[in-house]
Design a protein around this nucleic acid. Structure first.
Ligand SMILES: [Zn+2]
Ligand SMILES: [Zn+2]
Ligand SMILES: [Zn+2]
Ligand SMILES: [Zn+2]
Lengths: 132, 132
DNA sequence: CAATTGACGTAATGTTATAACATCACTATT
DNA sequence: AATAGTGATGTTATAACATTACGTCAATTG
């Protein structure tokens, strides 16, 4: 629910919803939740998401076709992030430390590559679910 | 075009097509190419792909919704693979060395996690395209 | 032989994402 | 004030990706 002057009304509504949910949501789930707030078409959601992702405030999980609020102050700076996704409870941990950027740096160097975007997603069962 | 007795006729057709193409193909692209070989519906493609992926002979690229033949003998054993994808020429490098498995091991340990599947995909511009 | 299994066929449907086009609100420039 | 530019918005239609549901068939196996 963090207020940010840079967001339009619609964008703020999507941001607020994602920040309330600990789990990833698909664009269509978001649409369903926001019908009463004036959203009527998928594109309205996708446009808001595009902006929020550009700002680093929302991440897209490629392996789920879903979206989640950034759990850090914002990943604009650090950049590279890895997502650890529990397939049971849908909890997502966002790992953003040096090991990630070092790994990616090594990868781009080996591959002689100029990277622009990364997607690192690990699926499995989290500790809490394992013990339950 | 590696022959493998374990594959059905349809599965072999999909495998052959993917092995001929250096670039990722979507399921519907595959379908288009294989209409003359008797494929009629998406499901026929997805079923073959499911089997081939299970065998480690084909990989799914989550960030592209596309599929590509494994460029190694087969990733059944090693497991973890990273894909380096050029957004210009669509060339895909498959990196499968120790740095990848070490990185993932560190990640699962930090996150206290039992991993079952990973998806590591790096987008950008390859060296060849950069120099062109 | 009955049961199980795995591949296959087909139609319908579900889910995710974008194209195309028009309009509106705000700002900057003339 | 008029003009033009920009970013957000609204709406409809459609493209692209994936699965459900149901039925058939052949090979294996207890
Ligand atoms: Zn983040
Ligand atoms: Zn869990
Ligand atoms: Zn492979
Ligand atoms: Zn390239």
């Amino acid at each position: 629910m963090t207020k940010s002057a840079e967001l339009s009304n619609k964008q703020q509504l999507v941001m607020d919803l994602l920040e309330k949910k600990p789990n990833p949501m698909s664009a269509y789930m978001i649409l369903d939740q926001l019908r009463d707030s004036g959203f009527r078409a998928p594109l309205q959601i996708y446009r808001a998401l595009e902006k929020l992702i550009g700002m680093g405030r929302v991440h897209r999980l490629e392996s789920l076709n879903a979206f989640i609020a950034c759990s850090h102050i914002s990943c604009e700076k650090g950049g590279a992030t890895a997502f650890v996704i529990c397939d049971r409870c849908e909890n997502v941990q966002e790992v953003c430390d040096e090991s990630v950027s070092l790994f990616l740096a090594g990868l781009t160097q080996k591959a002689k590559f100029r990277a622009s975007k990364s997607s690192i997603e690990l699926h499995g069962i989290c500790n809490a679910c394992e013990e339950a």
